[in-house]
């Protein structure tokens, strides 16, 4: 019962935070390009605006799938984001363990993909195939990273791993060589998951006109965008609290249940997000799908396998 109440409180919090983070991301991106950029609350304006627009369903689309899929995507990613946030607030494991969080976070891109291909647009189909390839490319190293963590600490519970960092008084990424490799692989997977340049070929604007999103508009587009920003926030928050839980460094001052620890964690998430999403987006050109796939199976996969090997050896 308690779990449900905490999760219900977290939903609006996650909604606000994810849109706010997206606004900050856009502002920083603009300032790096010497532009003024949109106001930080622009994503909220967009969200409200999109919800006041007409609902358009293309004639070629299978309308049931096309309309339900954005709702599932938004719900899954907000739930996926609330579980870690709620766990930190409550100070215990809320809702589920790491497997379910990653499962929920994978639901949202898959749902958007299905929605795109159900629209009957050829660009949606190309977007589907590209996204599928990318999913295979980054999902495997990401899961192996989590596997490595669980092998190391014999736990899949999210809050236990956070507590471990507080116990050892250091970031997980710095604790052991195996964890450093896992953290590096996880960080490298971030831009692919968030679909930012250089790995945004599944919704490349100039190539396939936003791929899966091509036929979406109005409230549906609003939901899909919300799903995207919520899952981006969720994954950054997850990565930070798993590998870079900064309050652990200052455990003398913060007990993990306090709001201060949460705030510090959020600030770290923001910095992490800027460096894994905004900076690559600013300084790189988009890769081709083949090149990106090759990169992911060469570098992050190798890193994650090394990490598992090291953790089995007990390093």
């Amino acid at each position: 019962m308690n779990t449900v109440i905490i999760l219900l409180i977290t939903f609006p919090l996650v909604f606000l935070l994810s849109l706010l983070f997206e606004g900050i991301d856009r502002k920083v991106h603009a300032r790096m390009q010497k532009r003024i950029g949109p106001p930080i609350i622009q994503p909220f304006y967009d969200f409200v605006k999109l919800f006041n627009k007409e609902r358009i369903i293309p004639m070629t689309a299978s309308s049931r799938i096309f309309t339900t899929v954005p709702i599932i995507a938004a719900a899954a990613s907000i739930l996926g984001a609330s579980i870690p946030v709620a766990s930190l607030i409550a100070g215990s494991n809320v809702g589920g363990d790491l497997i379910i969080i990653l499962y929920l976070l994978t639901i949202s891109p898959i749902m958007v993909m299905i929605g795109g291909s159900s629209s009957g647009n050829p660009y949606g189909a190309v977007g589907f195939s590209r996204k599928m390839t990318m999913l295979i490319a980054y999902e495997v190293p990401m899961l192996i990273c989590i596997l490595s963590v669980s092998v190391n600490y014999t736990s899949l519970a999210y809050y236990d791993i956070v507590l471990t960092q507080v116990k050892i008084g250091s970031l997980l990424a710095l604790a052991r060589p195996s964890m450093a490799a896992a953290a590096a692989a996880f960080v490298l997977c971030m831009p692919a998951y968030t679909e930012t340049v250089p790995f945004d070929m599944s919704e490349a604007k100039t190539e396939i006109v936003h791929g899966s999103l091509v036929e979406y508009g109005g409230p549906y587009l609003g939901l899909v965008k919300l799903a995207k920003s919520a899952s981006n926030f969720a994954l950054s928050f997850l990565a930070v609290s798993l590998f870079f839980y900064t309050p652990a460094l200052l455990e003398r001052y913060f007990s993990p249940e306090l709001g201060g620890a949460m705030l510090l964690c959020l600030v770290t998430t923001l910095i992490f997000m800027v460096f894994t999403m905004t900076v690559p987006r600013t300084i790189f050109a988009r890769l081709k799908i083949g090149q990106a796939f090759k990169f992911y199976w060469l570098v992050p996969l190798t890193l994650s396998i090394i990490s598992v090997a090291l953790s089995i050896l007990g390093l």
Partner: peptide
């Protein structure tokens, strides 16, 4: 090629 910064 998706390099917006260079474009700007």
């Amino acid at each position: 090629i998706g390099f917006d910064t260079l474009f700007m």
